[in-house]
Design a protein around this nucleic acid. Structure first.
Lengths: 99, 99
DNA sequence: ATTGTATTTCAATTTGAACTAAAATAGATC
DNA sequence: GATCTATTTTAGTTCAAATTGAAATACAAT
């Protein structure tokens, strides 16, 4: 699958963000979404197949974490997006405080 | 629309590539695709709304050109993709020549 | 070995984005 | 203004990707 299309999907992007700098179990990831556990698991499978996440078994659970290196130049794009999103949020707050 | 989703669509990416460093009329762009003129025009509209292309009227025609600056960091990603695609093509040729 | 929790996988359904075909608009030419 | 070419827009269709719900698998604990 095309790397760009892969990370363009909003839920997959959210998953990458959630496990960007920490490990989370599949269930913990899923609890952040409105869609079913099954749907999240399928997104995880797609991310796994693209090697965009690393998985580690720990007892019952499977711990996921973004493989930032594997994302190559796309990693910077994602970080950039999230940063600018936060910035625009900050601007929104500033503006509303001015009123 | 989300910038990443926008450039993830293969036909839109192809449009951006076609008018990356030259102007082309909508019909000239469309002639490079299997899909109908209407479909290409819709993609152009989406790219226009995102300001990822500049348009200029010239008589009957509308000349399109990628607004590379507007793409920000995504411009580098696209150029990178196309470069590596060419590289892998070159490798393919080499390999087949070896046989 | 059975029960429970965590996760994946599968078949069927839903949904949304891309597409088509046709009508509408825009400007050029006669 | 009628006609031609270029393009956009609209309504309806198609298709792939995302989702659901349920069954299957995996490991842990009793």
């Amino acid at each position: 699958m095309d790397a760009l299309q892969l990370i363009a999907e909003p839920n997959r992007r959210m998953i990458l963000r959630l496990v960007w700098d920490r490990e989370l179990a599949a269930s913990e990831i899923a609890s952040n979404f409105d869609v079913t556990f099954g749907a999240v698991s399928q997104h995880l499978a797609i991310l796994r197949e693209a090697d965009f996440v690393k998985v580690r078994r720990h007892g019952n659970k499977r711990l996921y974490r973004t493989d930032i290196a594997a994302l190559g130049p796309l990693a910077a794009i994602l970080e950039d997006m999230w940063r600018t999103t936060l910035q625009s949020l900050a601007i929104t707050i500033e503006v509303s405080e001015d009123q």
